[in-house]
């Protein structure tokens, strides 16, 4: 993926995105799609969630839009599954059951460098968030609680807030 392509994609207004977990852009950008669900679409509900909003002082349940995953992602910008198309990772809401990830703040915003809090509901798996693409620079790991999201979200350290570029499971 060239820098020119990335710059072009960055110029696409996120407001034009269709509100769905995975959705296609306008015909002119037919080679680009947007993904916010890398977990429940495979039939799973115990996911690692990155939230657009911070956890509040009165509740530690993420309520705003989220990106959910159960695989490692080396670049929160997105990926190119076949070299010809581009999948951008974005926040969306309504992806999880219960009272989490249910409101629209952050909907359609890019995942990369925009997350403020996380909840790891994976089973027996830690997820580690990195400041740099390719699992580089400082990081913060979160143990897997295996289910449930209410009361589990925690804020990223200030240096990683809005500075998330990749995450890895282990």
């Amino acid at each position: 993926m060239t820098q020119a392509i990335r710059n072009l994609i960055r110029a696409i207004p996120v407001a034009a995105l269709i509100a769905a977990g995975v959705f296609c852009a306008q015909p002119a950008q037919a080679a680009t799609s947007y993904e916010s669900d890398g977990c429940t679409s495979s039939g799973n509900t115990y996911c690692f969630a990155l939230y657009y909003n911070s956890v509040g002082s009165t509740t530690n349940s993420g309520v705003g839009s989220c990106y959910v995953s159960n695989r490692s992602v080396p670049d929160h910008y997105g990926y190119s599954p076949n070299g010809a198309t581009l999948v951008r990772l974005v926040f969306h809401y309504g992806l999880l059951p219960g009272g989490t990830c249910r409101t629209d703040p952050g909907d359609g915003q890019p995942l990369k460098n925009n997350a403020a809090s996380v909840a790891n509901a994976e089973c027996g798996v830690y997820d580690r968030v990195y400041w740099g693409s390719g699992y580089q620079s400082i990081s913060q790991a979160f143990y897997g609680t295996c289910g449930g999201y209410g009361g589990l979200a925690v804020n990223l350290v200030p240096e990683l807030k809005n500075n998330n570029a990749s995450h890895k499971r282990y």
Partner: peptide, 15 residues
Amino acid sequence: PPIEFNDANMPRRYG
């Protein structure tokens, strides 16, 4: 396992 021992991420901390 990960390549790093802890959150310091020494193998890739400086890229």
